[in-house]
Simulated scan of single mutants.
Amino acid sequence: MIKTIYDSDFKIISDDFGFKYQDSLTKKLDSSTENFNQDKLNEIVLWKVNRYAEFDESLINLINSIDKNESEINIDKTREILKELLKTNGVQLAMASTILRYRNPNIYQIICN
């Protein structure tokens, strides 16, 4: 039988306050004193659905090195970026292709599952 808060012997114990779940984002959200904005709400939603992907600054710089107006794909650069994206927790091929597409829709398209 599953216990609920409506059971007469229900008590909150100290262990109920601690949990391990997306540690770095949990700490970031818990320590924030800023007002909510779209970015903050997005982080909370992604935390809840366990889809938050934390990107390394060097990977972000690599993605940003793709010229938004480029009309020809750089295969070597794309391969390097895809390898790094796919190493990122929470990113699979469909998400990686979506990131690239929004960086440059002229040369990248979204791959669906």
Rank of each mutant, 00 (worst) to 15 (best):
N42W: 12
D7E: 11
D9W: 04
I2H: 08
Y108S: 00
Y6E: 09
D7P: 05
K27Q: 14
L25V: 08
E84N: 05
S97T: 15
K68M: 03
N74R: 07
S24G: 06
T26Q: 11
T98M: 06
Q92F: 13
D76E: 15
Y52M: 07
S58E: 12
L41D: 02
T26E: 13
A53M: 04
D76Q: 14
D16F: 10
I99F: 04
E72L: 08
V45Q: 10
E80H: 10
N61L: 09
R103V: 00
S97V: 09
T33N: 11
N35G: 14
D30Q: 14
K3A: 06
E34V: 04
I2R: 12
N104K: 02
K20Q: 06
L85Y: 02
F17T: 06
K68R: 10
E72V: 09
L46H: 15
V91K: 00
T4R: 01
I107Y: 06
I44R: 02
A53K: 01
N37A: 00
I73L: 04
S71W: 03
Q22F: 08
N89Q: 12
G90Y: 09
T78H: 05
K83T: 08
I111D: 00
R51D: 11
S58K: 08
K77Y: 11
Q22A: 10
R51L: 08
L29T: 01
I110L: 06
L82C: 01
I66Q: 00
K87H: 06
E70W: 03
A94H: 13
Q38M: 10
K83Q: 07
N69T: 02
K20S: 10
K40E: 07
Y6L: 09
S14R: 12
F36P: 11
E70H: 09
D15R: 15
L41P: 03
Q22I: 13
K27E: 13
L41S: 02
Y52S: 06
I110T: 13
L46N: 15
Y6C: 04
S24F: 08
